[in-house]
Design a protein around this nucleic acid. Structure first.
Lengths: 356, 356
DNA sequence: TTGAAAGCGCTAACAG
DNA sequence: CTGTTAGCGCTTTCAA
């Protein structure tokens, strides 16, 4: 018969030491209001008995959980896993824990997750909204109960919420301008969801660069896409059908689609990158530096985005007035990483604004 | 002056409905011991007031948190983020949440994390141990308190713990055998940490394949490595110095190192893959399918590993006797994914045991 | 079917 | 410096 050790509580320690449980509690949280001698006795007895504080009880009493809720569409995407890395390191440093959930870009699920996180009384929330999320209405419970929220990456207007975002427009502008500098004249754009602020911004940056340089633009240059590898291949096939209207450059909404297109062109066509067409993407996926030619891309510094958002949230948690007085937006600078996929002219690799 | 809504409790509902809080509690958890009429009144009033159960209080009372602790060395590594994806989806389905922490392969930190998770009274623990972790002694608190633990990927002997692991030996054997079938005669091995069971197994698999085929083997064929991109480059440089002893194949402990070596060979040497040397790795990193030639690799099905471990843990949580009566080991089958990097002879791409 | 009462383990105001 | 007391919000006997 296995003996089951019951959980040791402060009362057990109190009994053995003939002290009151409140004294034990104080001693364990290193309160100055308890004798140094007693403190030592308590600590050693606690160790002897293998005592571990029951956080649930403590949480209930103090109304603090030292837990941050994190919601992202997909944990395993490079961008998000890097961002989560930044978040986890930052908050773990201050003894916070993270509960991580994925919304799978499903608004219904996202709402359910938020409900659960609220019921668990997380001390703060970091969320990159699902693609379907129309507004911040489902976040109002948090606001109403003064639980700080910081959005990162994906966001929505008129929410009045603080956020850490990426300068998508500038990034797209830089990328497009770079292609123009390389002599490209007919630049197409593989655009992400029109409902998403971030892809809207990338589209704007692309448009502005064309305009500034008086380059031709037609609506047909813009190809809406889900930006998956499969969809990207379908689209490039479509583009190639119209032989009289081939682009000499392609600004892709992300690296995944750009990489898929490069692979397709290489394996199934005579079209060469960058000779016949320049290609650029967003995110600096690990593969982008490994393929040949390397993929020119806009680095989004996801680790930095996560870290910055987490720091802002911790600041809000410790200064609640700040959190609700007004909203704060931090824009993480982009870095254009130039690689072979856009280098028609010979040129050294340039990094701009390289953070970290 | 902003009005701060106090959190609504069951007592608030009770007061408004002139019922006792215990009835509210029962109604909200859909107990059969409360009138259908009353239940409806309670539910509608709860909705009206915007009531959300305080899980902390509930947890304390029921001694359940519906929370799983997950510990991995690095969240953002492809393997782990995929495994976490599998874990999160599996447990979220059953309304569990995951607290995720990274040990950075630091044993001290890992111990601290486990302490924190225990204090939070997670209902179960999934852990891929740090590289430094010598044994399972730091897991005994969980065992002593009958909190189920399942190891995944990284493990240790004599722990007597249940685990979900990958058949590393077989994978390495398959990969090596495939190279031999391609006509390779002098096969080197880029080996991971000797302290790690998984790299030990890969080494064994490599050795056995050589032996079975009566191929030459010398200790000097095995190059210990941290398996980072940087270290891999250093090692290949070293190997190339000894011009009379060049390998015609290289079994790398992971894809990261294999990819780095392929890039180095391509950019700085005349040595061609697979013509002069065949290269293979482990993990099926996304980049491995994008580069040219593609990298032959052993797919570890990380999502499946995570999912399987999570399912086992949930089972243990619901059947505690199972969890502590004996230990259970599930080995996830490997799949050799053959790509260009090892194809000397022309051959179609083969997948073996492809799960999913 | 509902109510009364106790208590999960901890913390914190108040007293001494 | 230490003890007393109350209570965080919920669940769960036990009683009616």
């Amino acid at each position: 018969m296995k003996k089951i050790k019951k959980n040791i509580t402060i009362h057990d320690i109190a009994r053995e030491l003939k002290l009151d449980s409140s004294t034990i509690s104080r001693a364990l949280s290193d309160s100055p209001r308890v004798g140094i001698k007693t403190k030592e006795r308590v600590l050693s007895k606690a160790k002897e008995l293998g005592y571990r504080r029951n956080q649930m009880a403590s949480n209930l009493r103090t109304n603090k959980t030292m837990t941050i809720g994190v919601v992202v569409p997909y944990i395993s995407r490079h961008f998000f896993s890097e961002a989560i890395d930044g978040i986890e390191q930052t908050v773990a440093d201050k003894d916070y824990r993270v509960i991580i959930s994925q919304s799978h870009d499903d608004y219904k699920l996202e709402k359910k997750i938020l409900d659960g996180l609220f019921m668990n009384r997380v001390d703060g929330l970091l969320i990159s909204a699902s693609m379907e999320t129309p507004d911040s209405s489902h976040l109002s419970i948090f606001k109403d109960n003064r639980i700080p929220v910081v959005l990162f990456d994906r966001y929505f207007e008129n929410g009045g919420l603080s956020k850490v975002i990426f300068e998508d427009k500038q990034g797209a502008n830089d990328l497009t301008q770079h292609m123009i500098n390389q002599g490209c004249k007919k630049i197409f754009h593989l655009a992400g969801s029109i409902d998403s602020q971030i892809y809207q911004q990338r589209y704007q940056g692309y448009r502005e660069a064309l305009k500034k340089n008086d380059l031709e633009f037609k609506e047909s240059f813009v190809k809406p896409s889900s930006l998956t590898a499969e969809d990207a291949v379908e689209i490039i096939k479509e583009i190639l059908k119209d032989k009289k209207n081939l682009p000499d450059a392609l600004v892709c909404g992300n690296d995944i689609s750009a990489l898929a297109i490069m692979k397709y062109l290489d394996e199934h066509t005579e079209i060469r990158v960058p000779g016949d067409i320049c290609i650029g993407g967003f995110s600096n996926e690990p593969a982008s530096d490994l393929i040949k030619p390397g993929l020119t891309t806009v680095d989004q510094h996801p680790f930095m985005i996560g870290k910055t958002a987490a720091e802002m949230l911790l600041d809000f948690i410790n200064n609640k007035e700040k959190a609700f007085r007004s909203s704060n937006t931090v824009e993480i600078k982009s870095s254009l990483i130039v690689r072979g996929s856009t280098l028609k002219k010979k040129k050294k690799i340039i990094k701009k604004n390289n953070i970290k």
